[in-house]
Nucleic acid binder design. Structure first.
Length: 869
RNA sequence: GGGCGCGUAGCUCAGCGGUAGAGCACCCGCCUUACAAGCGGGUGGUCGCUGGUUCGAACCCAGCCGUGCCCACCA
C-alpha cells in the first residue's frame, strides 16, 4: 500500500494544505497560448472591497467555481480573473473617515503627501490624485482579506489575473472607452433637468433610483382666475408654488374645457400662469387638474418639455431655497413672501408656505394624509430633487427606438441561466425613459478625460472640449495640463479648466471584460478571451451591471460581451427574508468555512440552483461534510484492497502543465470480468453522462445530485456486495479491484468541481498530478470498455440485499446475522441476474441456502433467518 | 398598475403527462475488520384552491388565493 494514504483519514487541514499547493504549482494558471476556441473565459463580478464578504458571496462564487472547474477538466483553458471593486462612493466615504481628508479637485497633486496618522477635526483637503492613492492604499488591505477567504473557499481563480476598478488600467480603459463613445456620438453632454441627490450633491441615473413609500398630504389650494373664481388643485408639494409655471388637465376633461387657454394666478406669489391641456393629466387624480412646477417630479419635466414652458427654479443643489426669486415672480407681495423662504430646506419651506396659505385663506380644508412612492437615490436618505445641470450621457436606447430594439436583440442573443431572467432585461430596456447619465459631481472616480478652453471672460467653452490623447491615459484633468497649454494657464482667461466631474461607477464596471481581458493593453490576450463565455452575477443588478456592459460592448465591438449570463439567487434566512447586515444575522464567511469545512459549505452552495433564492441551511453543510468523510473512507477501503497490486508508486510532483491536454488517469490493467462489476460500471457510465449533460447546461446542482445518487448506492450496495470477493485473491478478486479502481477514479473526478479539497486529497494518495487538471470522465469510453453489462443486474441484486437487510432489521438482529434460506421468485431476467451475482450475494448476506424460482410476476424475496437462539 | 418567480411529507427541495420522491428531522434497530461525526429499517403527503383539456394531470390550459422579487408617470 502506498505510504501516502493516511491510516486515519481526516478533513482537517485540507484547505490550508491544498490551497497552498495549488498556488505553488500554478494549478489554475491561465494558459495564454490557448486560442479563443480552447479558452473558457469568465467575467468575474468584482466584489466591493470597502464592504465585507458575506454568505451570499460564498454562495454565488462557488457556483461560478464549479463551472470553471468543470470546464478546466473538459480541457478548456479557463480564464478566471478576480476583480476588486474599489471605485465609487463606499470607498470614498471610508477614506474620508479613516484618514480625515476630503478631496478637493482644484488642488494640484502633491507627490510627497503623507496622510495624517490620526484623523483631525477638520477634514484635510487634498488633490484628487492623492485621494485616489489613499483609496488604493486602504483597499489593498481589504483585498488581501478577501483573497484569503476566496483561497480558503477553493476558488480556482488565477491570482495572476487580478484587477481593480480604480487602478490605472481601469481608469485608462474607462477613459479610452469614453473617448471612443464621444467620437462615435454615443456620448454627449447636455444641459437638462436631472434627478439630483441633495446630500451627495450629485446627479444620479435612472438605474440608481428606487421608490420608497413616504407619508405626504394632499393640500387643496385655490388659484384665483380672471373672473375671481378660483381653480382648485391638489398637491403634495405646496412649497413649490413659487416654481409653478402652469396648470394642466386632460384635454377631454369636461370640467376644465372652459379654462383651457385662460390664465390664473398663483396664490401668495401672484404669478400669472396658463391653464393647459395634456393627455398625461389624470382626471382621476386629485381634482383632475395639476400644477406644473420646475420641477416637482418627472411628469413635470415631461409637461415642461412638451408644452414649452418657462423655467422657474427655486431650489439649489443643496436642496435649499435659492437666494433670488425665479423669473416671473415680480409682484412685491410675492417677492416679500419668497424672501421668507430663502435658505430653507424643502421641509421647512413647506411648513412656511402652508402657514402662509392658512393665513391667506388659500388652503381649502385640512391637508389629507396619504402614503405615496417617492424617488430616492438607492444610497441616499433624502428624496431626490430635479435640477437643471450640464451632464454627460451615454446613449442606451432610452431616447432612441432603433438602438433600443438593437439592445433588446442583444438580450435575445444572450444565453440566460435561468432563461426567465431575460424578462427582467427586456422589462428594463423597454421601460427606459432617457439616456444613461454617467457624470457624477463627486471626486473619487474616473475623471472625464477632457478640458475646456476658457474665453476672455474666464468662462468655459463647453462646445469645444480639449480631449486627452488616447495614448496617454489615464489623465486627471484636475491636475494634468492639456496639450498646448502650460500649467499656469489653469483657470485663467484664455486658458483652460478641467472637466470637474467623475464617471458613474457603472461606467467603469460596465467595462469589466475589457479591463480584465487587457483591452488596449494586451491585445493578444484580449483576442483570446473576448467576448467572454460567462458572466455570473446577481439578478438584482441586471438593469445596471448586465445591461450597461451590453451597451458598452455593443457600441465598441458590435457584439455581446459574453455568450451567457448565469444569475444567482439570494441567501435567505430560515424565516425567508433576504439576509442582511441590519438584521444582525450575518455569519462571516471565514467562520463558516472553518466550522464546517470548505467542501461542506460548497456542497450546500451547490444545492442552490441558478437564480433560485436559497435558505441558509447548516444542515445541508453537515450533509456535505458527511459526503466528504464518506469519500475519504470509501477511498481508503478501495485503495486498501487495490493498491497492493500497484507496482509503481505515483510520482510525487505534477507533470508540466500542458496547454489543454489534462493528465489521463491510468486505466486498470485488468478489465472487470464479473457481471456485478460490469453492471456497476455501466451504471457509472450512465451517471457520467447525466453529470456531463447537467454541467454542460450549467446545472451544477443536477450534476452533483447525479454523482451523489450513484455514490451512495455504490457505497451501500455495490461495495457491500463485492467486499468479501475483493478481499480474496484470484481472477474474480482482480475483476473487483479493476472495477473499484475505475469507479473511484471516475467518482473523484465527478465530485472534483464541487468538493475540490477532499477529491484532491484522495487523488494525491494514488494518482500523479492534480485531479483538477485531470480529464473529465468520458461516458462512452467507460460504457464501451465494459459492455455488455446488464443494467437490471445491480438493481435486482440490490433489491434482494435490501429485503435481507429489512428482515434482519425487523427481527432486530445484527446485519451480520446468518440467513438459513433466501427464496427469490422473479422473472427469467431477474433470476438470471441473481444467479450471476449469487456468490457475492451469499457472502454479503451471510446466506446459507439461496433458492431461485422463475415465475411470471414481480420480484419477491422470502427470508428465513437462522435460529437466533 | 405591469412583469417574473415560487406554493409538493414537520423543514429544505427534486419531479413537470402515465400507480407520489430525496435529504434533514422523527421513530425502531445494529459496535457490520472503509466509515458509530457510522450503518440498516420505518412512520409521514386529498402535490395552494376552483374549473377545463385528456383514457390518464403534481405536471398542460383558464381563473382565483397566498408569497417573494423586478419594474412603473410621486399632481
Amino acid at each position: 500500500m502506498s505510504t501516502r494514504m493516511p491510516e486515519k483519514p481526516s478533513l482537517a487541514g485540507l484547505e490550508e494544505r491544498w490551497s497552498a499547493a495549488w498556488a505553488e504549482r500554478g494549478t489554475y494558471s491561465f494558459d495564454r497560448t490557448a486560442d479563443r476556441a480552447q479558452v473558457f473565459s469568465i467575467d468575474t463580478p468584482p466584489p466591493t472591497v470597502s464592504g465585507s464578504l458575506h454568505v451570499g458571496h460564498v454562495f454565488s462564487y462557488t457556483h461560478t467555481d464549479c463551472i470553471a472547474r468543470f470546464q478546466r477538466m473538459r480541457g478548456r483553458a479557463v480564464f478566471y480573473p478576480m476583480g476588486w471593486d474599489d471605485n465609487g462612493l463606499p470607498t470614498e466615504r471610508r477614506v474620508q473617515n479613516f484618514y480625515g481628508v476630503r478631496c478637493d479637485p482644484s488642488l494640484p497633486y502633491d507627490a510627497g503627501f503623507i496622510p495624517p496618522t490620526e484623523p483631525g477635526k477638520a477634514q484635510l483637503p487634498i488633490a484628487r490624485a492623492n485621494f485616489v492613492e489613499l483609496c488604493q492604499q486602504l483597499t489593498a488591505t481589504d483585498e488581501q482579506a478577501f483573497e484569503t477567504v476566496w483561497r480558503r473557499l477553493g476558488l480556482s481563480v488565477d491570482w495572476a489575473q487580478v484587477y481593480t476598478t480604480i487602478g490605472p488600467r481601469a481608469r485608462a480603459t474607462s477613459q479610452r472607452a469614453f473617448l471612443r463613445d464621444l467620437a462615435r456620438g454615443a456620448a454627449y453632454a447636455a444641459e437638462a433637468p436631472t434627478l439630483w441627490d441633495v446630500t451627495f450633491r450629485t446627479a444620479v441615473a435612472q438605474a440608481e433610483l428606487e421608490d420608497r413609500d413616504r407619508p405626504a398630504a394632499y393640500h387643496r389650494i385655490g388659484f384665483p382666475g380672471a373672473d375671481g373664481k378660483p381653480v382648485f388643485i391638489e398637491t403634495t408639494r405646496p412649497e413649490l408654488l413659487p416654481a409653478c409655471v402652469a396648470l394642466v388637465a386632460h384635454p377631454e376633461d369636461a370640467r376644465y374645457q372652459a379654462l383651457f387657454g385662460k390664465t390664473v394666478t398663483t396664490p401668495l406669489f401672484e404669478v400669472p400662469v396658463p391653464v393647459l391641456a395634456h393627455p398625461l393629466a389624470d382626471p382621476e387624480k386629485g381634482s383632475g387638474i395639476a400644477m406644473i412646477c420646475t420641477f416637482g417630479d418627472l411628469t413635470d419635466v415631461t409637461w415642461w418639455r412638451e408644452l414649452n414652458l418657462p423655467t422657474r427654479p427655486m431650489l439649489g443643489r443643496d436642496g435649499r431655497v435659492l437666494p433670488l426669486p425665479p423669473p416671473g415672480l415680480d409682484s412685491p407681495h410675492g417677492r416679500a413672501r419668497f424672501e421668507e423662504l430663502v435658505g430653507a430646506t424643502v421641509f421647512t419651506a413647506r411648513e412656511k408656505v402652508v402657514a402662509m396659505l392658512r393665513e391667506s385663506g388659500g388652503l381649502v380644508g385640512e391637508p389629507r394624509p396619504i402614503n405615496h412612492p417617492v424617488k430616492f437615490f438607492e444610497k441616499g436618505d433624502k428624496p431626490l430633487e430635479i435640477v437643471t445641470s450640464r451632464q454627460w450621457y451615454l446613449r442606451n436606447g432610452g431616447r432612441d427606438l432603433a438602438l433600443r430594439q438593437r439592445l433588446l436583440g442583444r438580450g435575445a442573443e444572450l444565453a440566460w441561466t435561468p432563461p426567465y431572467m431575460r424578462a427582467r432585461y427586456d422589462n428594463w430596456v423597454g421601460g427606459l425613459n432617457g439616456d444613461w447619465l454617467v457624470s457624477r459631481q463627486r471626486f473619487f472616480g474616473v475623471p472625464f478625460p477632457l478640458w475646456y478652453p476658457l474665453d476672455e471672460a474666464g468662462e468655459p467653452i463647453h462646445d469645444a472640449p480639449i480631449l486627452a490623447d488616447e495614448g496617454h491615459l489615464p489623465v486627471d484633468p484636475s491636475s494634468d495640463t492639456p496639450p498646448g497649454f502650460t500649467a499656469s494657464q489653469r483657470g485663467e482667461p484664455g486658458g483652460f479648466i478641467g472637466d470637474p466631474d467623475v464617471m458613474d461607477t457603472w461606467a467603469t464596471s460596465s467595462l469589466s471584460p475589457q479591463i480584465a481581458g487587457g483591452w488596449g493593453y494586451d491585445e493578444d490576450l484580449f483576442a483570446r478571451v473576448f467576448p467572454m463565455d460567462l458572466r455570473p452575477q446577481g439578478h438584482d443588478i441586471i438593469r445596471t451591471w448586465l445591461f450597461s456592459t451590453v451597451v458598452r460592448a455593443d457600441a465598441e465591438f458590435d457584439s455581446l460581451p459574453w455568450r451567457r449570463a448565469m444569475l444567482s439567487g439570494w441567501i435567505l434566512d430560515p424565516d425567508r427574508k433576504k439576509m442582511s447586515k441590519s438584521k444582525g444575522n450575518v455569519v462571516t464567511p471565514l467562520d463558516l468555512l472553518v466550522e464546517h469545512g470548505s467542501d461542506a459549505v460548497r456542497y450546500w452552495a451547490a444545492s442552490g440552483r441558478p437564480g433560485v433564492d436559497t435558505a441558509f441551511d447548516t444542515g445541508q453543510m453537515k450533509v456535505g461534510r458527511r459526503l466528504a468523510m464518506k469519500l475519504l473512507n470509501v477511498s481508503r477501503f478501495v485503495l486498501g484492497v487495490v493498491m497492493d497490486e500497484e507496482s509503481d508508486p505515483p510520482a510525487a510532483t505534477d507533470p508540466p502543465r500542458a496547454a489543454v491536454a489534462a493528465t489521463d488517469p491510468p486505466r486498470a490493467a485488468v478489465a472487470a470480468t464479473e457481471a456485478a462489476d460490469r453492471a456497476m460500471l455501466a451504471a457509472l457510465a450512465d451517471t457520467v453522462e447525466r453529470c456531463t449533460t447537467a454541467f454542460d447546461a450549467f446545472d451544477y446542482t443536477r450534476a452533483l445530485e447525479a454523482a451523489e445518487q450513484f455514490f451512495w448506492s455504490f457505497c451501500d450496495d455495490y461495495v457491500e456486495l463485492v467486499k468479501v470477493r475483493a478481499y480474496s485473491t484470484g481472477a474474480a478478486a482482480e475483476s473487483a479491484h479493476a472495477a473499484l479502481r475505475e469507479a473511484l477514479s471516475v467518482l473523484l473526478r465527478l465530485f472534483a468541481p464541487v468538493l475540490p479539497f477532499v477529491t484532491e486529497e484522495v487523488w494525491s494518495w494514488w494518482q500523479p498530478g492534480s485531479v483538477h487538471t485531470a480529464t473529465w470522465p468520458q461516458a462512452p469510453e467507460l460504457a464501451a470498455a465494459e459492455a455488455p453489462a446488464d443494467p437490471v443486474l445491480l438493481s435486482t441484486l440490490g433489491a434482494v440485499m435490501s429485503a435481507i437487510r429489512k428482515a434482519k432489521s425487523q427481527a432486530k438482529v445484527s446485519q451480520r446475522a446468518s440467513v438459513s434460506l433466501v427464496r427469490v421468485s422473479g422473472s427469467a431476467a431477474q433470476t438470471e441476474a441473481i444467479r450471476a451475482g449469487a456468490d457475492d450475494l451469499r457472502a454479503a448476506g451471510s446466506i446459507v441456502d439461496l433458492e431461485l424460482l422463475e415465475v411470471d410476476g414481480p420480484l419477491s424475496v422470502e427470508v428465513t433467518l437462522a435460529d437466533a437462539a
